[in-house]
Design a protein around this nucleic acid. Structure first.
Lengths: 159, 159
DNA sequence: ACTGAAAACCAAGATTT
DNA sequence: AAATCTTGGTTTTCAGT
């Protein structure tokens, strides 16, 4: 028993077949392993093994992606924020607001950028006025209402 | 036999069970109908029907969500853009760049906001300099490098 | 709820690097 | 030798009645 090098946990190598699997599963995350196998040119068992490996190693998850309009979300915004004090604390507060979708600490014109999803303009307005503005560390808010979406890729990577 | 309103195509009503289904499927989009039924308190057949209905009516899709870091994405940015001329044309050009993730036409300080995912700063820089800046309608670019992500909900709605 | 059909799972064995 | 793929048989899930 040779001493095994601990398997490369932090840099998992993804080959072309894995990429093709991801591409397939993007269209239908519940596609059967048999069909998936056909589509990528492997046996059913082989793709299952790969998918399991990829999921276990956290390369991807299979999840629901909600169609916001159908869900009654008709008013969204990307909001740039500047703040003083502990940015992480502010980011956490923003993340705790249920209607925030995407919260990042950034370097650039803004300290934090937040995406907010709301049912309508009234609700969006409420969230900004009642939830965001009162966070006292915030010094500046720049709201950009989303008018038309041209692309959304959900982390599927360059396609 | 009351005259059934033809099914509300544009305002599909989603009840609490549907929401619970979405919550469950968020964690594991391939969860079996049996387990899903148990978890939401419905028979296997009933949840299957619901899931099918929801998918057919485009309330949600089940898809792969890639863990960007594991995928070698270590440099991302949210970029605010101002432009003259046809914004839609510009948005389309931006959407055509493989590394853009999220492209919206907005009203506010910026005309268009784009999220870009790149392997590293060098690639990010290349995309901005070689792909985005050359779009001639663009008059201003404000790049915000994403330093830390605090929340990402993938359209799963208020949670 | 029942049932035939499909899909998922498992354990070795074969193959490739 | 290790990792990945295939095959064949079994169990579970699916979808329609």
């Amino acid at each position: 028993m040779s001493k095994k090098a601990s398997q490369p946990r932090d840099q998992y190598s993804i080959d072309d077949i894995d990429k093709e699997i991801i591409r397939q599963l993007r269209g239908d995350g519940r596609m059967s392993y048999r069909i998936l196998g056909q589509n990528v040119g492997l046996s059913e068992a082989a793709v299952r093994q790969r998918v399991n490996r990829l999921r276990e190693n956290n390369i991807f998850t299979i999840s629901v992606v909600v169609n916001q309009e159908a869900f009654g979300i008709n008013s969204s915004a990307t909001i740039g924020i500047n703040a003083q004090g502990d940015l992480r604390k502010v980011a956490r507060k923003l993340a705790d607001i249920p209607e925030t979708e995407y919260v990042n600490i950034t370097a650039g014109k803004f300290d934090i950028i937040v995406d907010v999803l709301a049912a309508d303009n009234k609700e969006l307005s409420r969230i900004i006025i009642e939830e965001i503005k009162p966070i006292k560390e915030i010094t500046e808010i720049s709201t950009n209402i989303i008018m038309e979406n041209y692309k959304i890729a959900y982390g599927a990577g360059p396609s």
